[in-house]
């Protein structure tokens, strides 16, 4: 029996998901039983969905033997359980950001999803947020989605989020089951970086694995924004863990490996910084 207990946005919680994956990844045509107890952060549905999809691709059946009723209601509202044969529930509080499974070429669907879930769907919940901050959040989410599209070589991209109106927070997670930072970078440069080194390299400005095209700004700009917004960003790629928040950077290694990459973002919605200040850039002096 697999148990997920108190899954939050922490290193330990990601470790629990990695254990779940490692313990069942060899299973083929099997029955995989799962219990979810105490707490489950809704945005982590994206990571759990990616892991369960790996099991389903080995033709295993997934059984949710027990889900704490409160958790179950959230996972019904955010559509996660509808991917596993349950009837969805209406979200009257309008605080969920739906679980979504997309192909990398589904950019247009992602756009509609972002508009519905983050822009139009929550106009009334985010009164205190400046227009500039909201735009920056959406831009950041896009940069990460596009990164997964371009770099990960994944079959699917999984996203999910959650609003916390009382805590003035939004959490958003983008997951792929592609090759991960380590293999991508080592393939490109013939290096032998560990996952943690690979992530550390990639979050710095101007670091790119694209050949013949400059880049490497998306993660760096995200990191700067997270700093100003007082939010948090976490990257899990294979056995590497990276976190950046007000306390700085922290890097750790997991036992076992996640089969791809998780980017977990937390933004403050009470951010009143004016991001749309007039820049001092002269339009005739860009090139």
């Amino acid at each position: 029996m697999n148990k997920l207990v108190s899954i939050n946005n922490t290193f330990e919680s990601f470790q629990s998901l990695i254990h779940l994956y490692e313990n069942n990844k060899g299973e083929l045509f099997g029955e995989i039983h799962l219990e979810i107890r105490q707490f489950f952060a809704a945005n982590m549905s994206a990571a759990l969905g990616a892991v369960l999809d790996k099991f389903v691709s080995n033709l295993n059946n997934i059984h949710f033997d027990y889900i704490n009723p409160k958790i179950e209601l959230i996972l019904l509202k955010n559509d996660f359980l509808t991917y596993f044969g349950k009837q969805r529930a209406a979200d009257t509080n309008n605080t969920t950001i739906k679980f979504q499974k997309l192909k990398p070429i589904d950019g247009k669907y992602f756009k509609n999803y972002v508009i519905e879930e983050l822009i139009e769907g929550h106009n009334t919940d985010l009164p205190q947020m400046s227009k500039g901050a909201k735009e920056k959040i959406i831009e950041a989410i896009y940069e990460i989605f596009v990164n997964a599209q371009i770099h990960s070589e994944t079959k699917f991209i999984y996203t999910c989020g959650q609003f916390f109106p009382n805590k003035n927070k939004i959490e958003f997670t983008i997951v792929d089951t592609g090759i991960g930072f380590r293999e991508k970078i080592n393939n490109r440069f013939g290096s032998q970086l560990k996952s943690t080194q690979a992530i550390k390299w990639a979050v710095e400005e101007k670091r790119t694995t694209k050949e013949g095209i400059s880049g490497g700004l998306g993660l760096a700009i995200l990191k700067e924004f997270v700093g100003v917004n007082k939010g948090k960003m976490q990257i899990v790629s294979n056995d590497g863990f990276y976190q950046f928040d007000g306390e700085g950077e922290s890097i750790k290694t997991f036992e076992g490996e996640f089969p791809g990459t998780i980017v977990n973002l937390q933004f403050r919605t009470d951010d009143i910084n004016n991001y749309s200040l007039k820049s001092e850039i002269n339009i005739n002096d860009i090139f």
């Binding site: 101007k206 749309s276 860009i286």
Partner: peptide, 23 residues
């Protein structure tokens, strides 16, 4: 030449261009 670029667009474009030159 570029026209009708938003303020945030200008900032992003300048960074992209500076990065490309160095690259």
């Amino acid at each position: 030449k570029v026209s009708d670029v938003s303020e945030s667009g200008k900032v992003a474009l300048k960074r992209v261009v500076d990065t490309a030159k160095l690259y």
